[in-house]
Design a protein around this nucleic acid. Structure first.
Lengths: 211, 211
DNA sequence: CATGGATGCGGAGAGAGTCTCCGCTATATC
DNA sequence: GATATAGCGGAGACTCTCTCCGCATCCATG
């Protein structure tokens, strides 16, 4: 035996390089063809063998998750900005849900695996989604506490609604207006006051729970 | 030449029989495996060759559309019932959207091709969807006219929202409550009055269009 | 620098699915 | 019955996912 410590050996340089190449290529390929694009095609374009791709990312979901962690940073930044910003709780929640929808729209077809991940606990995507649901909860509670959000709404459902918004606007040929409309519909849904134009006289006279 | 008339020959009996077998088998298979189930497997289970299946239904979408026309009748019946029923315009719209969501949930994964069909004009599913959007428009207009629905909502978007509801509750392991929540969210979204419990004092004081 | 074991590479190929092609069969008509 | 033909079936071309394993590469050590 040659090693005296039991720390793992440093990762091989080529392995790291290949991983990066895969990620770069996948980012580009998924942008062009959506998240259902061929993985073998990505390997070929990246100039590596299929086996290498599958060793780094055993399945499509893992690859997507890795791709998304890069973007997670942006979302976390947005969260922090909204958190510390001077906007109202309602606007913060609104902004956050917008951010989720935008994030879920990073690639064509992305909402589908995200929804699957929110309902089937065990996958790299699941933990990401779970984290964002928790953040949604935070914003939602704040909005509920100051009376600007209905109390009979759950964070998980708002998250799913944001995903759904993204899903509706999904496929290449979709209609942007529809996604916006669904987002608006959702906002009207959770807000305590039916917004006439947006930011109107807020008479939150009726906030009640559903048993 | 043997025929003197130029009438088309009567359709072959086996063709009709095969078509029916395919439809029956597909109905069953899709119920078990969702609309993405293998078409060749359906052919095999139906006891016919793959070629026969593909001659009758050149692609999955066509098969789905054929399968759905059977169910369309139920939806049309529901429409007529709601139309002539004594319920309020708001309840009619609500009931109709419910019916759409239920229809779109007939098979796992059905919402996806339906959404695709609503945005890409040319397919058998598209015309079906278009028809239902038109009906949605009818119910929506009625509700808008009596002030129970916001005027800044489009029928197409409500249809997509119903599809989205079904999509959220989609995959086998999904959470029924979430689908219900999204439906409720949507209802709160289009109704002019934020429903405290359901059917409350309706003070539709603010109905306005968005430019 | 040399070397040897661990680590990672790559691509052939198995398996599953979609869809086509075309020789043959079953069917409707005469 | 005879015959023209609509329709059948399944082999097989193509695509995609994913595995396996002989071989190349890298890094730690002497």
């Amino acid at each position: 035996m040659h090693r005296t410590t039991d720390r793992a050996r440093a990762p091989r340089a080529d392995a790291q390089r290949n991983r990066d190449r895969i990620l770069d290529t996948a980012e580009q390929y998924f942008s062009e063809h959506g998240v259902t694009g061929s993985l073998d095609a990505i390997a070929k374009r990246a100039g590596i063998g299929a086996g290498t791709l599958y060793r780094h990312f055993p399945n499509r979901e893992t690859l997507i998750a890795a791709l998304l962690t890069a973007r997670d940073d942006a979302l976390v930044a947005r969260r922090d900005h909204l958190r510390s910003g001077s906007v109202s709780a309602a606007d913060a929640l609104d902004g956050w849900l917008d951010a989720i929808a935008a994030w879920a729209g990073a690639f064509d077809g992305l909402p589908e695996p995200l929804r699957a991940a929110t309902t089937t606990g065990s996958s790299p995507l699941s933990v990401t989604c779970q984290g964002f649901i928790t953040t949604t909860e935070e914003f939602l509670h704040a909005a509920q506490d100051d009376g600007s959000a209905r109390r009979d709404v759950r964070a998980r459902d708002l998250f799913l609604a944001a995903l759904a918004t993204s899903w509706v606007g999904g496929a290449a040929l979709a209609d942007d207006a529809s996604a916006a409309a669904l987002a608006e519909l959702t906002r009207n849904g959770w807000a305590t006051t039916a917004p006439p134009e947006r930011h109107d006289t807020d008479h939150h006279d009726e906030v009640q729970e559903r048993p």
